[in-house]
């Protein structure tokens, strides 16, 4: 006779040492021709005024305050505005908490999203940066700030009990937009299975890119694992967004390809039209084994993702 034990919720798979190692490695490695988030920030337009000083050769003539120079007297005495250097990076991480993110049961996307948000917030803290944790969909604005080497208590609670979005999900971007500085980085972690009928999500992507924000879109693609489940035989398929409706499915290869194409078409339709040059798309594809180890998958996906490492690159 066999008894079952309910499996315990797996814990965060990365240690503090591993995250520190990740940060150091990220600061050294950078593919040729690419810049990191900190470099982008120094080249951007900081709006934080510091002081006026006399013009010296080499200064950017765009920083000359002509009205102030006219008030100084001699025509050759130009006055330039200087701005405070913006050394701290603001890393906003939006996590999709809709119902589809709770599946597949063997490796829920919401769990991986929470781990990724925690890892990014921790590494940002180790880098001296500030992290904003944000629920992408849902009711009242839910933005939690985390700073320092260890995520704050509120941030940890937010990550441990990531609240699910209410149905139907609504974009929840206003509170986040107000807190994103022009040189901030916005990381969006989602499966892109949602609809954007009013175009709010696409507009946000476009607007932030135009404001010199860098957007990293992490797409969690669980289709390989769910297809593996369907390959085991006929199934009565239900979905968290299907309101109890079930479909009798016996998937063959052609149908599987068709479904995968549909998924691609849908997900790319959400971000491709809004791409302006400041958007990086990253896809994390789930293993095709329903029994795969969640922690191992996350560790390999996180440490192997070069685009995410760029977030913490400080030198060109």
């Amino acid at each position: 006779m066999r008894l079952w034990r309910r499996p315990a919720e797996p814990g965060f798979p990365l240690t503090a040492g591993e995250l520190e190692g990740y940060r150091l490695a990220a600061q050294r490695r950078l593919p040729a021709g690419q810049v990191g988030a900190h470099l982008r920030r120094r080249q951007g337009q900081s709006l934080e005024f510091r002081e006026y000083r006399a013009y010296v050769p080499g200064d950017d003539v765009r920083h000359v305050d002509w009205l102030a120079s006219a008030r100084c007297g001699r025509p050759q005495d130009y006055v330039v505005k200087t701005f405070a250097a913006e050394e701290r990076l603001t890393l906003a991480v939006s996590v999709d908490a809709r119902a589809t993110m709770a599946w597949p049961a063997a490796l829920p996307k919401r769990r991986v999203a929470a781990w990724l948000a925690r890892a990014l917030a921790t590494v940002a803290g180790l880098s001296g940066d500030r992290a904003l944790l944000h629920r992408l969909f849902g009711g009242p604005a839910a933005v939690v700030e985390s700073a320092g080497a260890v995520p704050s208590g509120a941030a940890r609670r937010w990550l441990d009990g990531l609240p699910a979005a209410t149905d139907p999900p609504r974009p929840n971007l206003d509170a986040l937009m107000a807190r994103l500085k022009p040189t901030a980085v916005w990381v969006v972690i989602t499966d892109l299975y949602f609809d954007d009928p009013g175009g709010a999500f696409a507009r946000a992507l476009a607007r932030l890119q135009e404001g010199h924000r860098w957007i990293v879109l992490v797409e969690l693609d669980s289709w390989p694992m769910e297809r593996a489940l369907l390959d085991r035989g006929p199934a009565l398929v239900a979905g968290p967004d299907r309101a109890g409706r079930r479909s009798r499915v016996a998937l063959d290869a052609a149908q599987a390809e068709r479904v995968e194409a549909d998924i691609r078409r849908h997900t790319e339709g959400l971000w491709q039209p809004a791409r302006r040059g400041g958007l990086t798309h990253v896809r994390w594809s789930w293993p095709a084994d329903p029994a795969a180890d969640a922690g191992d998958f996350f560790r390999r996906a996180f440490t192997g993702d070069r685009d995410l490492q760029r977030l913490f690159r400080r030198t060109a």
Binding site: L230, A235, L236, S247, R248, V259, D262
Partner: peptide, 23 residues
């Protein structure tokens, strides 16, 4: 044994258009 195993998938919405298996 049920011929159709119950599965809950996040991608269920993309399977809705498939032909129904009659058995």
């Amino acid at each position: 044994r049920p011929r159709f195993r119950r599965r809950t998938l996040s991608a269920a919405r993309f399977l809705a258009g498939l032909p129904v298996r009659e058995t």
